[in-house]
Write a protein that binds this DNA or RNA. Sequence first.
DNA 1: CCATTTGGACAGCAGTATTGACGCATTCGC
DNA 2: GCGAATGCGTCAATACTGCTGTCCAAATGG
Lengths: 184, 184
Amino acid sequence: MPTRGSTNIAEMAEARALPAGRNLLFLREEELRLAQDLLFFGYRDFTAGADEILATLDMGRAHHRVLHFVGRRPGITVGELLGILGITKQSLGRVLQPLMSDGYVVQAPGESDRRQRRLTLTEKGMALERRLFERQRETVMRAYREAGPAAVEGFRRVMRGLMGEDAQASLARLEGPEPEGNRR
Amino acid sequence: MPTRGSTNIAEMAEARALPAGRNLLFLREEELRLAQDLLFFGYRDFTAGADEILATLDMGRAHHRVLHFVGRRPGITVGELLGILGITKQSLGRVLQPLMSDGYVVQAPGESDRRQRRLTLTEKGMALERRLFERQRETVMRAYREAGPAAVEGFRRVMRGLMGEDAQASLARLEGPEPEGNRR
DNA sequence: CCATTTGGACAGCAGTATTGACGCATTCGC
DNA sequence: GCGAATGCGTCAATACTGCTGTCCAAATGG
């Protein structure tokens, strides 16, 4: 039973014996381990700043996500938001209700379909979203500046590739043009 | 009260009026919004595959992280692990205890300092870690292949930049050489 | 008119993380 | 050698986010 450094994972020893050249068809052991580490640390620290602000308001990341996506798509319906976030109606309800009763978000019936509740940030909601946004801007701006424009483009390409089809579709919709007269 | 596309965030209209050229000193509004979206969707989908496997074993991401870092640093002490994960002793205890009692991880007193509990994966632990690893390899490999080697390098640079100092130090230690005879 | 869609609401459960306090064994420093 | 510091485990209470399941109301659309 191994208890020390070089364990008996055969593949690991094998992978380490390979030359340093990149072989993207067979992702080397160390390359993936590094990707795992980078994503863990990077995502954690990316969210850390906003989390601090949110904690003072008795909110969490889920609240931020709602503020973010409602801010990005004013007039979004509950159903669309659920699709983007990938959570259940009940989970959304628990963060959306407080956001509305605290005056960060307002809802209005859809014009063509009055079952819908179109969500919009209030002035208060925009102010908070902007505060969180500015906090994260510092983090991302520093990373982008240090890495350079070419690296930024590469970062975007890889992150897109990590997404599943659903997320890529959601992102395309977010980036895309505003739907006609907000009628979804 | 705005309910439609162009809200009254003055900066947004201003930013959108700028030419497309990158200005890294002043990160344009849309660039950061995109970064936020990419990180949210990308990280979520990156972890989704492993999460499925973990759910069948009544485990969560926290268990995976322990398996990952103990696998990366066999003989790591509890304190070092706490430093890397950035969580409290209590939180770690709740996932580490089950992992030990289920035979995924074993602990042994340190040789030079017997207060320490050095953690190591068992065969069973290595097998599970590998299974989770292989699942994520598919996701990352696809993203890397589609993006290309240059993009991968850029991705790494940006992710490193997102990390705070502590995380960068932790990562350097993980990537760095095995400490002498495992004596920390 | 009725099935479907959209959304709200209630109850209960699980996983992850927190703070604070206490206890024990071991090691370090003077 | 002895007190202080370190490494670790544990108890209790709490918060946030997600899940499942059930039920209900309003509006839409054949």
